[in-house]
Write a protein that binds this DNA or RNA. Structure first.
Lengths: 153, 153
DNA sequence: TATTGTTATACTCTATAACTATA
DNA sequence: TATAGTTATAGAGTATAACAATA
């Protein structure tokens, strides 16, 4: 499918890169969601557990920032995760306003399953691509993310 | 941020490419959504209007496939679009089961505004990248999309 | 019977606004 | 007053299942 024809007067030899990214991401995310769901999780759960495991998170605000969602949205997810026994929340004795989120054993087990799904997903994605190509792709994507939030126009 | 440390025993020098793609897409999509909303639209609306304008769509099923959503989901959007006067639906005289979706003048005007937003978005995304780099990026993304749905593992 | 599309319903993710508790 | 987090509510997008109309 070519959309070039609709962009009258605009030099657009190929598909707009934003559209390609949107479509790719939609397809890839859907496949990833299915894998995460099969492993008993979801994308927000995976991102939250990953942030808890790999970052030194000082507060829920930090955690929300790390995941890229609002504090209220994080509360929503953490509520479900706490009810499911995946994390515990307790008030920081040093400052009872902030709460300390910790992974339970069950949370760790889910994390490991989701990590496995994530690794498998990634291995699959890399098929036919060299490490150099994947690394280059990552830098190009970083540039897009930067441009989306910082570039002028 | 490096997540390499959490992938014990897995050779993963850099971030998983799936995660990079997820984060990039989230950031870029959010920026695009804002632009489309400012122009009076949304991503599904844009994709539907784009498909109507650039493809020879024979039925709503075709249109849904082109956009990548279910028929019922498309009905949902078309309902709103018809109520907003952006499209009309009439039964195909040749086969009264299928319906013909057509853009109204108002729909065309919205299409043009969204196209403008899309072009601006794309121009912004390309900042600092050569045409060759963008083209290469597109082929890499195509590979990922293919791998997500076809590659074995 | 099979197909095209619609309607009813519900789920997930996200958000804003109002609120509580703490500093 | 300002900050950390929660709760209430809502909205967008998507989906499945049941349905109606047509072939």
């Amino acid at each position: 499918m070519s959309t070039g024809s609709c962009y009258d007067g605009v030099v657009m030899a190929h598909q707009p890169i934003g559209l390609v990214l949107t479509r790719t991401s939609r397809t890839v995310s859907r496949a990833f969601d299915e894998r995460l769901a099969a492993a008993g999780g979801s994308l927000p759960l995976w991102l939250i557990l990953l942030a808890l495991k790999t970052q030194t998170v000082r507060s829920q605000s930090d955690l929300a920032d790390a995941v890229g969602i609002r504090g209220a949205t994080l509360s929503h997810h953490l509520g479900g995760m706490e009810a499911a026994g995946l994390v515990t929340r307790r008030r920081d004795p040093a400052s009872r306003r902030t709460s300390l989120v910790e992974m339970t054993d069950a949370g760790t087990r889910l994390f490991l399953r989701l990590r496995e799904a994530s690794v498998a997903h990634d291995k699959r994605l890399r098929a036919g691509l060299s490490d150099e190509e994947v690394a280059y792709l990552a830098t190009l994507l970083d540039t897009l993310a930067f441009n989306a939030t910082n570039a002028s126009t």
